[in-house]
Design a protein around this nucleic acid. Structure first.
Length: 227
DNA sequence: GAATGATCATCA
DNA sequence: TGATGATCATTC
């Protein structure tokens, strides 16, 4: 089944409302999509299905999911109490010095400028198909959140630029962290080595910590309704 | 291969 | 139990 891109923010939010309350199994049935037999084979399945249902366009290209609207779509697994089960992948970490600029122009900042969060409610360890689609939240970082992200990004990217990627672990950063992001631990990309010269290294990704996304998802209740 | 979509498996 | 590092599927 093919869904056309939403023409407006209102249309996107209406579509998100329309699928809220469905289980992922029910959404899969509507879209005539198969359900992976094993949970460990289903990484990314829910996210891609919700993309299809809402009419996202980017596929695996480095573009916003809703290009015309400048909105990024993120599904996020949450417990029934609303707390995220996992951290959230954002984008690849630029490992070559030439790619690094300043926060205002950073790709990750662009990517997080406007995000439609779609919670998928379920228990830890449950099959993704059993999760239920929650109420979506269209979010932009407030000044405090932007400041936190910026501070983390500057600290982390300084290390990258200095060729200290190998000393960076997921323990750095209060909201944003850097973790491996690859098919396996043998994958290699070009980056700034310890000597300052280009060197092959493990690709990394930026992830939002669960504590950060928990707070941002909770904001809707604090403000009395979100969207 | 490298980007997207993420969750799994393990250990502190 | 939660966080870290490793891994899985799909697309371009």
């Amino acid at each position: 089944m093919k869904v056309s891109p939403p023409r407006s923010e209102a249309e996107l939010l209406e579509r998100a409302r329309a699928i809220a309350g469905l289980s992922m199994a029910e959404l899969a049935a509507r879209l005539d999509a198969p359900i992976p037999a094993q949970a460990r084979r289903a990484k990314g399945w829910a996210g891609q299905l919700v993309e299809t249902a809402l009419g996202a366009t980017a596929g695996s290209r480095p573009e916003p999911d809703f290009q015309r609207l400048g909105i990024e779509l993120k599904t996020i697994p949450v417990r029934p109490d609303g707390r995220p089960l996992e951290s959230t992948y954002v984008c690849t970490v630029p490992l070559e010095a030439a790619e690094v600029g300043h926060w205002e122009a950073a790709y990750i900042r662009h990517k997080l400028a406007r995000v439609l969060w779609v919670p998928l409610v379920g228990e830890a360890g449950g099959h993704p198909a059993e999760r239920r689609i929650g109420a979506a939240l269209l979010w932009s970082p407030d000044p405090a959140e932007d400041a936190v992200l910026r501070a983390d990004w500057e600290e982390l990217m300084e290390q990258v630029c200095l060729g200290r990627v190998d000393t960076l672990t997921a323990r750095h950063g209060t909201a944003l962290q850097i973790r491996p992001k690859a098919a396996d631990s043998h994958a290699r990309r070009r980056g700034v080595g310890a000597s300052g010269a280009p060197e092959a290294m493990l690709p990394r990704g930026f992830y939002l910590r669960a504590g950060f996304t928990a707070t941002l998802l909770a904001r809707r209740y604090a403000l009395g309704g979100g969207q």
